[in-house]
């Protein structure tokens, strides 16, 4: 299939992109790596009148470490983030999760911010952002604002970004994570997972970010609370029934998905030591 006709602009600055976004409203869409948007255009699931290409904005491509905070620019490709020494050292969960994001050709073009802003419930990065308690940087006509990851993913492919806001980057607090783990079950290498878990243990708190379990990536609060308080792993597995929404799809019933989630939790947290 061929995409419906659209206009295309590649602004030179972030400010110009935001101005265009404000001017054209819902008829405009941002494009960076295009790894989700272009298939949607060709399938005619999406038919915007204007594409605003922010893929070459250098100001969105920094990876920096300052004040115990790792900042990843929204425009960084997955491949760039995955192979960056600072990320590998301070946010190994992200580097590990990215190895499961699609295939090398897609990671070479797809962007970190694009995946988060797309808010696909089966994508790895939103669950990582939740588990790492990341903070999203948004910029709109009114200026910049920060949105905690826990408030960012609002529903299926929907985020807290306003229609005229651009996700510019993500802050990840570096708090000397004592443990982390990542696991997903996908039928084939690079496929969207049937269920997946990004888990982080920090002093005083454990976060369990899940993907492919419902309308958005979500944190399993009850199970995490049990683990945080030093409770038994099996109790946390039981609690997942209340944490995770019942979600049927052609690959797995809700019951099977809950079972697989428990398997992942045992494998990831079980590897952290005796409980």
């Amino acid at each position: 299939m061929k995409a419906a006709a659209f206009d295309y602009i590649r602004p030179e600055t972030l400010g110009a992109a935001i101005t265009l976004l404000s001017k054209h409203g819902p008829d405009a869409k941002l494009i960076a790596g295009g790894q989700s948007l272009l298939p949607a255009l060709n399938l005619r699931l999406s038919a915007p009148g204007l594409l605003i290409d922010i893929g070459r904005l250098a100001e969105l491509r920094d990876i920096t470490l300052a004040d115990r905070t790792l900042h990843i620019g929204a425009g960084c490709t997955h491949a760039h983030v995955m192979n960056h020494p600072i990320v590998q050292r301070h946010a190994p969960l992200i580097a590990r999760a990215l190895t499961e994001v699609a295939h090398p050709a897609i990671r070479a073009r797809g962007t970190f911010g694009g995946s988060l802003a797309n808010a696909d419930p089966a994508a790895e990065l939103p669950a990582c952002a939740l588990a790492l308690d990341a903070v999203m940087h948004a910029q709109g006509p009114e200026g910049p604002r920060r949105i905690p990851a826990a408030h960012f993913f609002t529903s299926l492919f929907e985020t807290a970004l306003a229609p005229d806001e651009v996700l510019t980057g993500v802050d990840i607090p570096i708090q000397g994570d004592t443990q982390w783990g990542f696991a997903e079950l996908a039928r084939r290498t690079g496929d969207y997972a049937m269920v997946g878990l990004a888990a982080v243990a920090r002093p005083g708190t454990i976060r369990l970010g899940w993907f492919s379990v419902g309308q958005t990536a979500i944190l399993a609060h009850r199970a995490a609370a049990i683990l945080t308080e030093g409770g038994p792993l099996e109790a946390a597995c039981t609690a997942l029934a209340d944490d995770l929404p019942a979600h049927d799809d052609p690959q797995a019933s809700a019951a099977m998905r809950l079972h697989l989630a428990r398997v992942l939790l045992r494998r990831v947290v079980g590897a952290w030591g005796e409980r």
Binding site: P250, Q251, A252, S253, A255, M256
Partner: peptide
């Protein structure tokens, strides 16, 4: 019959 309801679709 690994898990409770024993039925997975697909």
């Amino acid at each position: 019959a690994t898990y409770a309801d024993g039925v997975g679709r697909g």
